[in-house]
Amino acid sequence: MKIEIKDLRFTFPTGLEALKGISLTIEAGEQVAIVGQNGAGKTTLVRHFNGLLQPASGSVMIGDWDVKKYSVAKLATRVGYVFQNPDEQLFSRDVLTEVTFGPKNLGYAKEKIDELVQRALSLTELNDKTETNPYDLSPTWRKMVALASIIAMDTPIVIFDEPTTGQDALNVARIANAISELRMEGKTVITITHDIDFCAENFDRVIALSNGQVLLDGPAREILGQDEVLAQTYVDPPQLTRLGKRLGLKETVRNQEEFLKAIT
């Protein structure tokens, strides 16, 4: 499902102009990372995709729907959004109920709900924790429950807000794996992240925001090499990209495979 944003502007009630005219198109099935310094407008932008925020001017289209004309609950059938802090989301007495909540709200048939929930639980490696109270789990696993509860909604578009913050290497790998599964199912994945290495390894397209505007937008390979422009929004290129540059490699490398291939 395509996302089309035209000259989107947004100002907070405090008078802070958070988005200053953003135009973007995200095609169905794209894997997009949004990067940029604290306060660049990343979260404000994605909250327009499911109607949590309404544009001051400009438009946001999710497929053929104008977000202004649909409720958040309705838009939830098209856009799933994992909040940064799982504690703002979880409330059920066990993981299974929690993960079932979303698809149930969307009104799927019972068999379909069961199937979606099972798939989400196995994607997030929660199969052995279905009866645990989410609050007895560590913050790391709570994050996975939050992920599962959105993945189970089976929306064509999934948004992750800082999925790797405070996560250890194992869990970052689990999250990367879940994202790559979603990619194979043809879903659009949009992720806000400060973890530029994670971004380089899992996303095809990178959008860098700075002060409420698009600073850079394009294929990850092109964007991540532009260290001087990225520095404007307080982002460093990924470690291996920097390494490749220092070694004088001709092409920009993003991940281990590309790097090793380039030096062979």
Partner: peptide
């Protein structure tokens, strides 16, 4: 033991296996 590492370390470890 499932600790994270910098990309420099993990890539060099893999490179070492391939003689790079």
């Amino acid at each position: 033991n499932g600790f994270g590492s910098s990309r420099y370390t993990s890539t060099a470890r893999e490179a070492k296996k391939r003689g790079l």
